[in-house]
Structure formats: structure tokens, C-alpha cells
Computed example of a mutant assay.
Amino acid sequence: MLTGKQKRFLRAKAHHLTPIFQVGKGGVNENMTKQIQEALEVRELIKVSILQNCEEDKKEVAEALAKGARAELVQLIGLTVVLYKESKENKEIVLP
């Protein structure tokens, strides 16, 4: 579980990132969460955008992504989700 200070730090780091995944009409599926897990292992911090045609609630999508990828939900702002997971091999981000 991340503290408020750690979440602030990660939000600042994620500000300049562009979303690398999109959740569309199909919603969250197993293949997507697997790819997100792999991306998190390499990058540690990613953004995912939720498209307008996504039928599920954005909060449910954010929670499903975090749970499926076994990651921490840092932020849900608008239709953008920020996820963090500490990398086992490529650790770059040092939390305060």
C-alpha cells in the first residue's frame, strides 16, 4: 500500500508520461492485464487511457486494471489511470 507522500511523488513522475494502453468497448480482459503486467515490469509506472466508448464505469475499470496487473492504483484523473508496480529486475524508481 502506498502512502500519500509516495502517491504524490509518483503522480509527479507520471505527469509527463503518455498513455501506452487503451481500454475500449471490450473493457478489461485477461490479455490486456497480462500485457500491462509485462509493461509494468519494464517501466514500473504507466498510464492507461479509457476511451469514451468503454461501457464500464471508469472507477471499476481502474480497479480491475490494478487488481488484474497486481499493481497499485496511483491516480484516476479524468479518463486516465496511473498504475505503479515495483519491478523485480529493472528497479529505477526509489520511493520517498
Rank of each mutant, 00 (worst) to 15 (best):
M1H: 10
L2T: 05
L2F: 10
L2H: 10
T3P: 01
G4D: 15
G4S: 15
K5P: 00
Q6N: 02
L10D: 00
L10T: 06
R11L: 03
A12R: 05
K13H: 07
A14F: 02
H15W: 08
H16P: 00
L17I: 12
I20C: 10
I20N: 04
F21P: 00
F21S: 01
Q22H: 07
V23N: 04
G24A: 06
G27P: 00
G27D: 00
V28G: 07
V28W: 10
V28R: 11
V28C: 06
N29V: 02
N29A: 04
M32T: 08
T33V: 15
T33K: 12
K34I: 14
Q35E: 15
Q35T: 07
I36M: 12
I36W: 03
E38N: 05
L40A: 06
E41P: 07
E44T: 11
L45K: 11
L45C: 07
L45N: 03
I46W: 04
K47E: 09
S49W: 07
I50H: 01
I50S: 03
I50C: 06
N53Q: 15
N53W: 10
N53D: 13
E56Y: 04
K58Y: 09
E60Y: 10
E60K: 11
V61E: 06
V61N: 03
E63G: 05
A64G: 01
L65D: 02
L65S: 08
A66E: 01
A66Q: 05
A66G: 07
K67N: 10
A69P: 06
A69R: 06
R70Y: 11
R70V: 03
R70S: 14
A71E: 00
A71Q: 01
L73A: 06
L73D: 08
L73P: 07
V74F: 03
V74M: 09
I77W: 04
I77T: 15
G78R: 14
V82P: 08
V82S: 13
L83Y: 07
K85W: 04
S87V: 04
S87M: 12
K88E: 12
E89C: 11
N90L: 14
I93P: 05
L95E: 02
P96F: 09
